[in-house]
Design a protein around this nucleic acid. Sequence first.
DNA 1: GTCGAGATTATCT
DNA 2: GATAATCTCGACC
Length: 228
Amino acid sequence: MTDERDAEAEERLHDVLSSDALAAAPLLLGAIVSRVGDDGERVAVRITEVEAYLGERDPGSHAFRGRTPRTAVMFGPGGHVYAYFSYGMHICLNVVCGVDGVASACLLRAGEVVEGADAARRRRLATRRARPGAPLRDRDLARGPANLAAALGVSLADSGLPIDRPPYSLELPDAPVDAASIVRGLRVGLSAPGGLDPFHWRFWIDGDPTVSAYTPHRTVREAGRSEL
DNA sequence: GTCGAGATTATCT
DNA sequence: GATAATCTCGACC
């Protein structure tokens, strides 16, 4: 890639990441995120599923109840990593969006490993007990947010790192994913007091086998109409 | 293919 | 001490 194209891509990336998460989320589909792990191995993932979190306006967001040491990164400028710990062993990887002072982030839920599959598999097996006779399929390497983070070797200490500087990199696709093949729906794993998460802020590439199967149809059914 | 239950720990109140 | 942006497995269709 020439320097000129580099500069152009960098500017485009900056534009996307400084808009709010809801606008940025569909544009991140098809992007390639990579990270060089402590073992020196680079793993790259093509993003196929994301969720948008709008901070203080969004009851589902960690930032909803204000700024805490953990969520401080989310209130910063876009283009940084927000890594958080959830449910014991799981680390999830977010890309902070928006301008400084506004909490907004995209959770990377799933992707397809396009480079470093061996390293990704090694890391997955190291963080999870492997059962004999149940090999880890390629398509499952980065399927699910915690799995994606594990494949990339994300650690909690990564919070606050720029997403487009080593050990990370982020490249948007040459052209945005066709709107016709983008599906949106309810976010996963959220419940609001007295009801379900009301926002259809989860985006994924229709039919892609690496999109997480963890999609309770019940949630979608009971949610009724879409309001966005 | 869908559905339900349990595991597990950093962070906040 | 309660909570949480989840995953896996086993049971069933």
